[in-house]
């Protein structure tokens, strides 16, 4: 149940377009960057890290 004196829903108040023209592109950019950062970290670990003996 919504609050008694709450304002009108605001999902449709948006008048500015999404960055990059669409949200799908924005999400793709975030996902690609995240995977890129993980790949860079993997590359650093694979190049430099040497597991300590147990």
């Amino acid at each position: 149940m919504a609050s008694a004196d709450a304002p009108t829903p605001d999902d449709d108040r948006t008048d500015q377009p999404p960055p990059l023209g669409s949200w799908a592109r924005m999400y793709l950019l975030v996902a690609v960057l995240a995977i890129g950062v993980m790949f860079a970290l993997w590359l650093i670990a694979a190049t430099y890290n040497i597991r300590m003996p147990d």
Binding site: A2, A6, P9, W23, V30, A31, L33, A34
Partner: peptide, 30 residues
Amino acid sequence: LPFAMILLCIFLVPLYRSRAILTPYEYLEE
């Protein structure tokens, strides 16, 4: 985390912002 944020943007943000709610749990009653 980045993938969680994308999923929240797709599924939960429209859900919360299309209702005049002050806590997410209000939606669960509806």
